[in-house]
């Protein structure tokens, strides 16, 4: 792992891994979607409309998972001052934002036929919406500071303060109100879901994870190139003046 902290080695590895992860992610999503649409049985209560959860639930998991990854990279950057960790955190944020938006939008599409309303102020919806704004604030902070090293330092702290706050916010919102159905998959007595429904869900979750890695690698390579360009440009300006 530490060997790949070297940006050149990382870039070489990332270049090889990008097409494979991207291909595997897309392929697995297609398999997952096929299973979700044709293999999984319709729900006896919710009918065909419940199939949207195969897109929705993994997206909601990823929304949280990517935030945790962002915070872990920030902590690594904070402790070891490693630039690649900052880049990983920065590159994760927009991906997490998209997963969060996907979870919100599919949730609304599901809520309309099920609850009869596009939006309900229930605990989990509200937490995810606030998570969306936390991502947004993080991205805005990166954009608001011109110099990348300064922006990285500020963003690290914001991500860490955010991750301390996420459980508190979640708990407070939970306490505030709950209408949403309880957890179905992660329960002490095992998932309360039939296997034909669980398989497509897990396939989709794995697909999303691989896609996250693929997009993360692409964005990180972009960011490294951008920084190199910036250094070159600054060097040119320094030479001409």
């Amino acid at each position: 792992m530490l060997a790949y902290a070297n940006p050149t080695r990382f870039l070489r590895l990332a270049r090889t891994l990008t097409p494979w992860t991207l291909g595997a992610g897309i392929l697995l999503s297609l398999v997952g979607l096929y299973l979700a649409l044709f293999f999984a049985p319709p729900d006896y209560q919710q009918g065909e409309a419940m199939r949207i959860i195969y897109v929705h639930v993994p997206a909601a998991w990823m929304a949280l998972f990517v935030y945790v990854c962002m915070a872990v990279s920030s902590a690594v950057a904070f402790i070891w001052k490693h630039p690649l960790a900052d880049i990983a955190a920065k590159a994760s944020a927009p991906i997490g934002l998209v997963f969060t938006a996907l979870a919100l939008i599919t949730g609304m599409l599901w809520g309309q036929p099920m609850w009869g309303a596009w939006w309900v102020w229930d605990a989990r919806l509200t937490s995810v919406l606030i998570l969306f704004f936390l991502y947004l604030g993080y991205i805005v902070l990166w954009g608001a500071i011109d110099e990348p090293t300064r922006a990285a330092r500020a963003a690290r702290i914001l991500a860490l303060v955010g991750v301390v706050n996420v459980p508190i916010i979640h708990f407070s919102v939970e306490w505030w109100s709950t209408l949403h159905q309880g957890a179905t998959v992660f329960r002490a007595d095992g998932p309360s879901m039939t296997t034909p429904m669980l398989i497509p869900l897990l396939v989709m979750a794995v697909a999303y994870n691989i896609l996250y890695v693929a997009f993360l690698l692409i964005r990180m390579r972009m960011e490294v190139s951008e920084r190199r360009l910036r250094t070159l440009r600054l060097g040119l300006e320094g030479a001409s003046s």
Partner: peptide, 24 residues
């Protein structure tokens, strides 16, 4: 402090974190 004219940025950073206070 690293942001020029950071007033609005400040609000976007602070307000989501203050949700628990509002609720309780």
């Amino acid at each position: 402090t690293s942001v020029q004219r950071g007033g609005m940025v400040l609000a976007i950073l602070v307000l989501p974190l203050n949700v628990p206070f509002l609720i309780f």
